[in-house]
Design a binder for these strands. Structure first.
Lengths: 196, 196, 196, 196
DNA sequence: AATGAATGAGACTTCATTCAT
DNA sequence: TATGAATGAAGTCTCATTCAT
């Protein structure tokens, strides 16, 4: 029950996330994951069939947390523009504050492991059939304030810049302060909003 | 003399590009590169000090070709908006027609190999000190039609969506026809153009 | 529990000593050491960082045993001459009975591996700062029966002939029986003793 | 005829001697020998069947030069003691001035390559059946000033200390000045001379 | 005769996975 | 249930040797 008495499986997942994010899948020997998690190598294979399954499990954990964070920041009472800016802002902030999660996702999606998940992308078409806040916004009632574009373009204009900026932030090329985040969200909105 | 009688070094580079793009650096044993290139393993080490140097050499080859393609599509007589759309269009088209190059670059930049090149990003700050067409546009005379934003944001709004869409195109989620490309370029422009 | 159930690390060390002595460092592939030791290749790397470390470990093992053998043969009650002859005799006998150790040491000292240990030479300046029986004899109270010579010359006149003879013995050119050993020890003593 | 127009075979031999002495047989790739010699790799194989044959050829060259140097320093008119000291002195001086030759010989004799030549030792039983100055001295007319010892012991007391000191000299542990050489030669003589 | 590009056997080393304890 | 010693397949790289030019 206590913090130190976590599920052994969770200990492994957190250790794996850290290692994978810092060193990449291929530079993270299972033995290293084990010692970082404070468990024996063999134990990893009790909870996960093999290294691949562990990688997918880390993805599921990270993705769930991200979905939850975004969903939590929804506010149905806001206007389309405000809600969009709010969602973008919280997504950027969450990932900027959780660089390991971001690095892991980047690596996962650009590797053979993420091939299957390509359709699901960062936030779109969340697992379990539940739609996601962004897609709701693009096609819900508030969509009348948007230009009529294909979904992939909405997604590209929304997530593309975010990912790009987060990479720069990780590299230390840019600091994602509130002003910049605000500018980013507004620019994205301008890209997809209906002409007035 | 014949077309098939290329430089052995080039044979290796092309084979490596193909393998790396399809399988990733870590799933492309040197022995496999060699047999795809139709040369002996040892020959690869005649031309490249080690696998790392080969990877960097492939990058240089791919990056040079990309730079050339973009530069060739410049047209100084166009207005800011038209030039921007033209540049974005040719970048998308080039990378969509050269998926191996795109996959390679994605992988390269998100790996330790590309760490040094982070600053230089896809097109920005091209090697050799020569500035690049996009940066010229963001800060040249035509920049008065743009909102005043920090460079990283210009770059994010321009390249972020492109990269995102190209990934979707590779996954077969979207077809980058002329209409979609035009919509993309215009949306990006709207994101960064000065309010009228 | 049984005698054959030694430390796996020792199994490897003994196998390595044998191979190195017979075939030399460069003609003893790790795979061969492994199969001679009856372990998997990977196991060697569990106990030793790399082949170099294994080589140094074999040296330490061999050198320790040699030091112990010589020290055990000391007898402080003997006169200078008698003690010298006793030490030389036991050194020759030990190395003649342990040809693999001798071959290993020869090879080790004349290779880059032994470069650091050059100063320490066969017996001189034993590790751990403790002086060695020979040096004690050259400079202790009994030294008055010796000519006044620089240390390197004492060492050369003592160990040089021993090494030379041991090589001949290994080659089968000579048999190191008691008589020859006695003659050798006396000749060495005559080389360094004070004129009467 | 000119110095630069040497036999190509000699160019290779000298380059090989240098490389082997400095880096050892196993760290001297044939390609490196070739470039040091200023010839193509293939040329080495015109003059020497393979690397082993080259190594043996270098030995022959070095050994011949050494024999010649010693023989040249003979002086039949000297007394036994004086001649011995003269021979030892010139041997030490020659090898101390030719460290590459010494290093090569050390390496050669302590490797599988020198296994066959074990009988011939440094100077003893020179090739071609010609006896050598030291052996002549040990068993010729002047031998009456010597104790009656087996040949291997004469050799051991003569060459053992020399080799030992030369190693120390190479390591920089000792400087072989005239005084030390004289002391060495005299000590060796005392080891084998007849009791007076 | 001379060259050096090309080759591939073989060396060292890593690491995912198993299994006896 | 948990462990970690043991394994060997597979990867990177070197270098002696060949052979077409």
């Amino acid at each position: 029950m206590s913090v130190t008495q976590q599920n052994k499986s969770d200990l492994i997942l957190y250790a794996a996330l850290e290692q994978f994010a810092e060193n990449g899948f291929h530079s993270s020997p299972v033995s290293q994951l084990a010692s970082l998690a404070g468990v024996g190598v063999g134990s990893i294979y009790r909870y996960f069939k093999d290294k691949d399954e562990l990688i997918h499990a880390v993805f599921t954990m990270v993705d769930d947390a991200l979905q939850k964070a975004i969903t939590a920041s929804m506010n149905p009472e806001l206007s389309g523009r405000s809600e969009f800016i709010q969602l973008v802002t919280s997504l950027i902030q969450y990932l900027d504050k959780h660089p390991q999660e971001f690095k892991f996702l980047e690596q996962y999606y650009s590797s053979p492991y993420g091939a299957d998940k390509k359709r699901a992308k960062f936030l779109c078409e969340g697992r379990g059939g539940s739609s996601n806040p962004f897609v709701d916004l693009f096609f819900g009632n508030k969509a009348k304030s948007l230009k009529d574009l294909p979904l992939p373009l909405y997604l590209a204009m929304t997530f593309g810049p975010i990912i790009f900026l987060l990479r720069d932030s990780l590299s230390g090329l840019v600091t994602l302060d509130e002003a910049l985040i605000q500018q980013t969200a507004e620019a994205s909105w301008n890209a997809i909003k209906a002409e007035n």
